[in-house]
Amino acid sequence: MGYYVTAEPGVNLFVEDINPGGAKTIVFIHGWPLSHKQFEYQFTILPAMGYRCIGIDWRGFGNSDKPMNGYNYNRLADDILTVVRTLELDNFTLAGHSTGGGIAIRYMARHNGYGVAKLVLIDAAAPVGFTTETASRLLNETLNDRPKMMQGVTDTFFFQYITRPFSDWFIQMGLEAASWSTAAVIVLLRDETLHEDLPKIVTPTLIVHGMHDKVIPFSQSQEINQKIRNSQLVPFQYSGHGPFWEERDKFNQQLIQFI
């Protein structure tokens, strides 16, 4: 079931809530510049196994409202808190991919992990995001030829072969975002870091990262592993930036075992 949660006046966040009666709840936070739809191959499998899966579209992305402001880690983490409180979630697993992993990290540090029993970081954009050079290139493409930018993101995202129809679907997902929110999060990834957030996390944490990731280097997952005390790192040998799709069976199994 899909519905909206009001984050602030004029800003409503889209929430996909699958199997609300499930025994355990997993809240998924997508990556830039995508939407909750990126977790299709989790939402197909996990609810059928008895899990409640909740996908949240950040402001500016997917089916959520697209205001001109609010694209920083604090505001995005506060948006997640609003959804958690509105749905009265507790003892849930928070799973964030890429920039969504960064948002999850800020949520844990800023809100003391409110309601979270376990944390899953998937190729997280932490403790840093984009280099100045990468951000400049992506900003230029976003402001001048956003479809080309999305094609480039898709081409570097996966290590394994993807079909043309899959590539088209993935690109269209990214183009559902507003151009201004897409650009604003590039700036976020260039300018904000999460070094001080990581030591504040004490919740059991599973770190998943593709060894062939060209977006966020695997070495960053090792640094996260060192700085989050109660964490474990599981490398995905046949994945780039998308182990939730590239090795989806292994990913789903790791997730189930962890929670």
Rank of each mutant, 00 (worst) to 15 (best):
E176L: 11
S136K: 15
M150H: 12
I103T: 04
F170H: 15
G62I: 07
L194W: 01
I105Y: 10
N230P: 10
F244T: 03
Q254G: 05
E16D: 15
L255V: 06
A125T: 07
N225I: 06
L255T: 04
M211F: 12
G31E: 13
L255Q: 05
Y238R: 14
R110Q: 08
H212L: 05
A177K: 03
K214I: 02
V15L: 10
E40G: 15
T154D: 06
H36L: 07
A77I: 00
P47V: 09
T25R: 04
R248Q: 04
L188M: 13
A95L: 11
L175E: 09
L76V: 02
L46F: 01
K227H: 13
V27M: 05
D191K: 11
M149I: 04
D197C: 14
P235M: 13
P217R: 01
Q38S: 01
K24R: 09
I29M: 04
Q226P: 11
T86P: 05
Q151C: 04
E176T: 14
Y238M: 14
P147I: 09
E223A: 15
T163H: 09
H212P: 10
T86F: 09
T156D: 08
P165L: 03
K24N: 07
N69S: 08
I259V: 15
V15E: 13
R52I: 01
V15C: 06
Q253W: 05
D145S: 14
M211Y: 13
R164S: 08
I216E: 03
I259A: 02
P235H: 08
E176W: 10
I103F: 00
E246D: 07
G242D: 12
I103R: 00
V116E: 05
R52D: 00
R75D: 02
D191A: 12
I162H: 12
F170Y: 12
A77Y: 01
N225Q: 13
I26Y: 01
R164T: 12
A125K: 13
E223P: 07
Q220R: 09
F130R: 11
M49H: 09
N19Q: 08
D191V: 13
L89K: 03
V83C: 08
